[in-house]
Each structure stands twice: as structure tokens, then as C-alpha cells.
């Protein structure tokens, strides 16, 4: 049995960790880019960002004051049991959000979209978002939080099968150039590309690809993995670096996720996860223990399953 009180304290903890500590995969990726970046100004930016992460660690303060729109991704093991059920879990996540907003502090970014009113705690109608997924044969619950700004760097486009890979490349370039100027996308970014599904799935897949996979991770489909590398190289050949200054570091990694789509279409979404790529995960075990990490491990083989049955009959 997993106690909801434990979930609340773990959610509070990951809110804090995400806001303050940059994940090591991202930090290492940026350190690598410091070596290869060709422009003096973008190099200075990367250098300053590394100092900023050190300052955040030492002072225990948020690395970026725009603490984004805090949200959650919950993966529930099929054998997990919650003492207060799913409603209790959702309540715990909302409570943890409000408490962490005050304590860390996070910026209370969330306002009503029309009246601009707020509760000063990042909680409101449909906020924080909680997305759900499931995992067979385990009894734990994974709670991941992502803090991502949301004003620039994301786009959606309905392409068609005839537009091919060229169409995808053009669209990725369009988005990176448009939002890369003046550095509005806060690059170098983890670029997530959603391909397929319906329009909303396409957006969701792209966002999850950007926020829930780590630097260096490759899609298990070798051809998609190859396309990830190709898009990364393409983005880094724009001639643009951090803050839109002349340079070579736009894309720290590219992640693609796909979903079966309408036979006539090829919807594509592009998302950029910024220089403050904030994510943290807690795994709550049934015996009451909690483990923390920065790799959400969201896209499991089960998540990407293709057949009706699980385990996949063709894979056995």
C-alpha cells in the first residue's frame, strides 16, 4: 500500500529538486558544447549558465526565476495500491505544488487566462496538469515534475505524407530559427519532435519527448534514432548559438516520439526544453521507501507498444 501522505512529501521534494538542481545529463551536455561552440558570445553564455547552476546548488535557490508551469507526469504500476486512491493522489500533488510555491519559492506564474486572477500558489483550473501512464507487473508509482516556461519555442504543423522527411526538416528549421533569434527559445535546447497521432497527441508526444527523455538517449527504432541525430546536426548547422548570437550550439539533443496517425496526414510538433531543463522524479515503493532521480524513464517499451496484447506477441 502506498500512502498518499508519502506521495505529497515526495512531490514537494521533487518540486524543490527540479527548481534548484540541473539534471546531470543536461549539464554534461552543455559542458561538452562549451568545447565545441565556435562563437565567443555564445561561449560566454554557456560559461555563465554553468556558474548559475553552481550558484543554485550552493545557495539552494531556483536556477531560473521563471519557474515555468509546474506540472506532473504520473506512472502507476499495475499492482500498486493507493490508500486514498487517485483522487487522494491528485489532491496530494496540488497541495505539494502550493506548498513548494511558497517555500522554495517558485514564481506563482499561474493565472486565469482571461481575468488574470490568481491564488499565488500555481494551482487553479486545470493546473497543475497531471498526465497519467501505466506500467505492467510492478507495484511502484513514479511521480515526475517538469518546470518549463511556455511562451516561446513550440509549434505545430499539419504536414502530409508526400512532404516526407524534407517537410519535417523544413518545419524543424523554421521553428528553431524563428524562436532561436534573440534566444527566445533559451537554447541550446533539448528539441522534442512529435510525429503523428491526432493533433493533441502530436503536441503531447513532442512535449514529452523534450521533457521526459535525457540527453544522449536514443529512440529504440534505429531509423528514428538516425533521424534524431540528423535533426540535431541540422539544428546545429544554422549558424546560431545561445541567445541567437552567431555560433554553433542550438540543439543539445533531439528526441522523436511517434504515434499512429491518419493515413492522409503527418502532423508534426516541435518543442524546445530550455537552458534550465527542470525535471525530477520520485519512485514510491509499496514498502514505503522513496527513490529520487532525474531520468523520468517515461517511455518504457510498454508505452511504445504496437500490438493489442502485452507482452507483445511478435516480440516474444
Amino acid at each position: 500500500m502506498i500512502e498518499v501522505a508519502k506521495i505529497e512529501s515526495a512531490a514537494y521534494e521533487i518540486m524543490k529538486r527540479a527548481a534548484i538542481h540541473i539534471p546531470s545529463d543536461y549539464k554534461n551536455g552543455i559542458k561538452e558544447m562549451q568545447r565545441t561552440e565556435t562563437g565567443p558570445l555564445p561561449r560566454f553564455v554557456l560559461h555563465t549558465m554553468v556558474s548559475n547552476w553552481d550558484a543554485a546548488d550552493e545557495d539552494q535557490r531556483p536556477m531560473c526565476a521563471d519557474t515555468g508551469l509546474p506540472r506532473y507526469y504520473v506512472k502507476v504500476g499495475n499492482d500498486a495500491r493507493l490508500d486514498e486512491g487517485f483522487i487522494g493522489l491528485e489532491r496530494a500533488l496540488r497541495r505539494a505544488t502550493a506548498q513548494a510555491t511558497h517555500d522554495v519559492p517558485l514564481r506563482p506564474n499561474r493565472v486565469h487566462p482571461l481575468w488574470r486572477t490568481e491564488h499565488n500558489n500555481n494551482v487553479g483550473i486545470n493546473a497543475p496538469e497531471i498526465e497519467w501512464s501505466f506500467e505492467p507487473d510492478v507495484d511502484w508509482v513514479d511521480v515526475t515534475t517538469v518546470h518549463k516556461g511556455g511562451l516561446f519555442g513550440t509549434d505545430y504543423r499539419m504536414l502530409f505524407p508526400g512532404d516526407g522527411i524534407d517537410g519535417i526538416k523544413r518545419f524543424v528549421l523554421d521553428t528553431l530559427i524563428a524562436f532561436g533569434k534573440r534566444g527566445l527559445a533559451c537554447q541550446p535546447a533539448i528539441v522534442g519532435v512529435g510525429i503523428g497521432g491526432s493533433k493533441d497527441t502530436c503536441m503531447q508526444l513532442g512535449k514529452q519527448a523534450a521533457c521526459l527523455r535525457t540527453v544522449g538517449d536514443r529512440n529504440p527504432d534505429p531509423k528514428i534514432a538516425e533521424l534524431e541525430m540528423e535533426l540535431m546536426t541540422l539544428g546545429n548547422s544554422i549558424g546560431m548559438g545561445a541567445m541567437g548570437f552567431v555560433g554553433s550550439s542550438m540543439v543539445i539533443d533531439c528526441h522523436i516520439e511517434v504515434g499512429y496517425t491518419h493515413t492522409g496526414g503527418m502532423p508534426v510538433s516541435v518543442h524546445t526544453f530550455c537552458l534550465s531543463s527542470r525535471r525530477a522524479t520520485a519512485r514510491l515503493h509499496s514498502d514505503g521507501t522513496v527513490e529520487y532521480r532525474t531520468d523520468p524513464q517515461w517511455f518504457t517499451p510498454y508505452m511504445r507498444r504496437e500490438s493489442i496484447e502485452w507482452p507483445d506477441q511478435t516480440a516474444v
Partner: peptide, 9 residues
């Protein structure tokens, strides 16, 4: 710079 040098600032 960055953007997002929140801790330094």
C-alpha cells in the same frame, strides 16, 4: 544572459 541566470541574479 542565457536566459535564466536566476540564481546568479
Amino acid at each position: 544572459v542565457g536566459y535564466g541566470t536566476g540564481a546568479l541574479l
